[in-house]
Design a protein around this nucleic acid. Structure first.
Length: 814
RNA sequence: GCCGAAGUGGCGGAAUGGCAGACGCGCUACGUUCAGGGCGUAGUGUCCGUACGGGCGUGUGAGUUCAAAUCUCACCUUCGGCACCA
């Protein structure tokens, strides 16, 4: 029996050995510099899928690379195990969500281990464990005590049939997925975190290395706008307080010819006249069935309804009508706008439709402002129709108007954000209970720290309506008030699972601490995360929440530094072989366990990284797997099969082999450090081919060959940990290759003696010329001009110019 | 709709201002005591040409540049996110 590469024979063996010898455990006390490598933890949906491998295997490669560079690497893994699917399973199959979740975790942990990743399982964190969510609740109370948590009304999807709040994904075409009832948007009491208090700081990314696209998306999500808040008196006897609007264009206030307030605005009810009541009520109901995405569409026709009430423009003194319209959102600014149809597209469309007045407030070279406007224009020259401000240039206008508003107490400069405060309460069962008790005498009382965690009840009954069983579990709900001991009731809302994932990375540093979320020493040892990896789909929400959480924790004195994750790399989405998202209904799912059975974990890891650039994702191509398998076989053969070695090989050949080896070290190091795994593998394949050629050409220099073999294994070790470990042992190296040092390229060996220049004439490639590497510009020009082909094409004409790019090309231009 | 990306051979992709198609799959031919989805060598964008060579070619249209897949503008298509999926 020949000694063939058989992944199934070697992979389980080495995984066992790694686990026994605990080479991936990250000691808290270790003289090496620390490196905290973190990849987003999975939701235990039941089955590990290729997307998990796609996210985690390359993250493991990066972690292994850091370990070989000499870092004390912590690379933990856990489960984000609270959430909706467990409840759906509970309702559908009558299983306890806890049982379902922990069964899935056990299964997925086993599947994860097949990957051969260097996870430190001693640090595993499971967010639905009371020992974890005790601290999620504790964090909530810290935010509450610091004034960062508050209660307010906000819109929620409400199913009137189920009498329950629905997640967006439970709403299908405006209907409840379970009962098919029409879903309403209803204002409900919710708990919020004041993330907007940190908005300005969240816009800064000092000293962190995050992708530009993620920073841009976050900046746009936060959406900082500068402008002013202006107060408009409401001409309704029963309403004494003014209607406050936010505007980015206070300079156009004289053109504010009507007001629009959100249909959910608290004033709507009080200002609507008897005659308009019917129309307004109908419009409010219709808006409740419209999604926010539709409401914000710039294409959709504007609709609205007149309240019958009027406001007074504080600058022009004009009495202007108040409308409601769904393009104004209660969640943005003050939920009310002054409409300036002359200078805003949406207001213009609205005014046209409902025949409202349009007053331009700027002159403009292309617009005749004495005639009815055909289109709005955002900017102009000098103010007109603006009383005392007429003639003011636009550049000074906003400041002047705001100054006057401030001096008269009718407004002030203001900043607003598109970002809304983070709603953290959920009307669900499978989450960490909000630690409050409602007492008839003392109101909302926080659960004392000593009584944490508030543990979810077990063996509860799920009704098919989707209502949280917490409300129905009497013995859990009815408790004495912590202040007076009189009968009181527990809060039945639970915390958003984003809250768990906002601080899980902190817990990994000290996962079993019963006294606090983590010790000071653990924080000092491990924070912040050096390298965070995960899906780009988390660009805004999770990645903003966790930054906010960290900053709040910093201000509580619990962590140091301004950012939780120094460097971020986001992978793209791995698709099925047909280029579509993998789904059971499409039948294009590639199950990782099957791939491991077929090809081995090393080959599957490599193929996932070889199919394309990691940050872009793309189709997984199982037919291409044979290329990776062939390559791994070639590596195996190169190491295992006998090679004719000598101490007297031709020096040029030895030099060439060493050059290839050292060039490969340089390029592979560059690629792996920048998460370019596809090209990293290409470089390694080229190296294998070069080794094969050297071997087949005749006896090879012993030292150069052995260097090539060791280098190939070391550079491949992060990608394919099993086969390289096996071969490392076979060449007599000490256990383990994963604790060995990453090789360094010696420029003296990598250096090229010659360079090839491209010769272009008028930008078209016409020839090539090989020169000594140290040739000067003059040498290069002379060599090019001396080429027969150049002489032939140039003839007697005199070039207009000749462009020389060192090491690359000479372009002769006529 | 809004925000962010991406579009290159038969396929996955490489090249981030300087030789388009690295590396790999597939295909073709040849070799191999190779009975199979093994291994090796060569070829493989397209059109003209026996060949040397040349024309065209990176979603579409314009532009900047000695030089554009790469930069700029407009458009088309696909993907990720849009606040209770995680």
């Amino acid at each position: 029996m020949t000694d063939r590469y058989n992944p199934h024979a070697i992979e389980p063996k080495w995984r066992e050995r790694w686990e026994e010898s605990r080479i991936y455990a990250a000691p808290d006390d270790d003289p090496r510099p620390k490196w905290y490598a973190l990849t987003m933890f999975p939701y235990p949906s039941g089955d590990l899928h290729t997307g998990h491998w796609y996210a985690m295997a390359p993250s493991d490669v990066a972690a292994r690379y850091r370990r070989m560079l000499g870092y004390n690497v912590m690379f933990p893994m856990g489960f984000d195990s609270f959430g909706l699917p467990a409840e759906n399973a509970a309702i559908k199959r009558n299983i306890d969500p806890k049982e379902w979740t922990y069964h899935n975790i056990d299964r997925m942990r086993g599947q994860l281990k097949l990957m051969g990743a260097s996870f430190d399982w001693d640090r595993e964190v499971i967010t639905s464990d009371p020992e974890f969510y005790k601290w999620t609740q504790w964090w909530f109370l810290q935010f509450y005590k610091r004034g960062l948590a508050y209660e307010a009304e906000s819109l929620a999807n409400w199913c009137p049939g189920c009498q329950t709040v629905l997640a967006n994904e439970q709403v299908i075409d405006g209907r409840c997925e379970r009962s098919d009832d029409l879903v309403e948007r209803k204002m409900m009491r919710q708990w919020f975190f004041k993330i907007t208090a940190y908005a300005d700081e969240l816009l800064r990314y000092d000293n962190i290395d995050w992708p530009e696209r993620i920073k841009t998306m976050q900046r746009n999500w936060i959406g900082r706008s500068e402008g002013a808040q202006l107060k408009f008196a409401v001409d309704v006897p029963a309403v004494s307080e003014p209607l406050t609007v936010f505007t980015t264009r206070p300079d156009t206030v004289f053109g504010a010819t009507f007001m629009v307030i959100a249909p959910e605005h608290s004033l709507v009810d009080r200002i609507t006249t008897v005659e308009q009541r019917g129309e307004i009520d109908a419009y409010v109901v219709a808006t409740g069935r419209t999604t926010e995405i539709d409401r914000l569409s710039t294409e959709r026709e504007k609709t609205g309804a007149f309240t019958g009430a009027y406001a007074i423009n504080p600058f022009s003194g004009e009495r202007i009508p108040i409308w409601i319209a769904d393009y104004v959102l209660v969640t943005y600014g003050t939920g009310a706008i002054m409409a300036v149809p002359a200078h805003d597209q949406r207001d213009f469309a609205f005014a046209k439709k409902y025949g409202l007045k349009i007053v331009p407030t700027y002159d403009h070279p292309d617009v005749d402002t004495t005639k009815p406007l055909e289109a709005p224009y955002a900017h102009g020259g000098r103010m007109i129709n603006s009383g005392p401000f007429d003639g003011t240039p636009e550049a000074d206008a906003a400041a002047k108007v705001v100054a006057q508003a401030e001096s008269q107490g009718i407004g002030e400069g203001a900043v607003t954000y598109r970002l809304r405060d983070w709603s953290v309460s959920r009307q669900r069962f499978w989450g960490a209970p909000l630690p409050f008790i409602h007492c008839p005498t003392h109101g909302t009382v926080p659960v004392p720290d000593s009584d944490l965690p508030v543990i979810l009840p077990e063996n509860v009954e799920f009704k098919p309506t989707g209502q949280s069983p917490l409300q129905l579990t009497e013995e859990w709900v009815n408790v004495p008030c912590p202040v007076c001991g009189e009968p009181a009731k527990r809060e039945t809302d639970t915390l958003d699972t984003f809250m768990c994932s906002s601080w899980y990375q902190m817990r990994y540093a000290d996962p079993h601490n019963p006294e606090r979320p983590f010790s000071k020493a653990a924080a000092e040892q491990w924070f912040p995360v050096d390298q965070y990896t995960g899906g780009a789909e988390h660009a805004v929400m999770h990645l903003l929440y966790t930054r906010f959480f960290w900053k709040a924790a910093r201000d509580m004195g619990l962590v140091e530094g301004d950012e939780p994750m120094k460097r971020l790399v986001n992978q793209g989405v791995i698709l099925g072989p047909d280029g579509n998202r993998m789904s059971k209904s499409r039948g294009n799912v590639v199950a990782p366990d099957d791939q491991v059975d077929k090809w081995g974990a090393d080959a599957f890891r490599c193929q996932l990284m070889f199919v394309g650039p990691w940050d872009q994702g793309g189709p997984y191509n199982p037919t291409g797997m044979s290329g990776i398998v062939r390559w791994l076989n070639r590596v195996w053969t190169l190491v295992v099969e006998p090679v004719r070695l000598t101490d007297s090989a031709p020096p040029e050949e030895t030099k060439a082999l060493r050059r290839t080896t050292h060039k490969t070290i340089a390029s592979v190091t560059e690629e792996i450090a920048n998460f370019r795994f596809n090209t990293m593998i290409s470089r390694l394949m080229e190296h294998s081919t070069a080794m094969q050629k050297a071997r087949d050409a005749g006896p090879v220099d012993r030292e150069a060959w052995e260097e090539a073999v060791r280098t190939a294994l070391l550079l491949t070790a992060p990608l394919a940990p099993h086969i390289t470990e096996e071969l490392w042992e076979r060449i007599g190296q000490p256990y383990s290759i994963h604790l060995a040092s990453w090789p360094t390229a010696d420029p003296a060996f990598a250096h090229d003696d010659e360079v090839e220049l491209v010769v272009q004439i008028n930008g078209k490639v016409r020839d090539h010329v090989t020169l000594p590497a140290e040739a000067s510009e003059a040498d290069a020009r002379a060599a090019v001009m001396a080429l027969p082909r150049v002489a032939e094409l140039v003839g007697d004409s005199v070039p207009k110019k000749v462009i020389y790019v060192p090491g690359r090309l000479v372009n002769i231009v006529f």
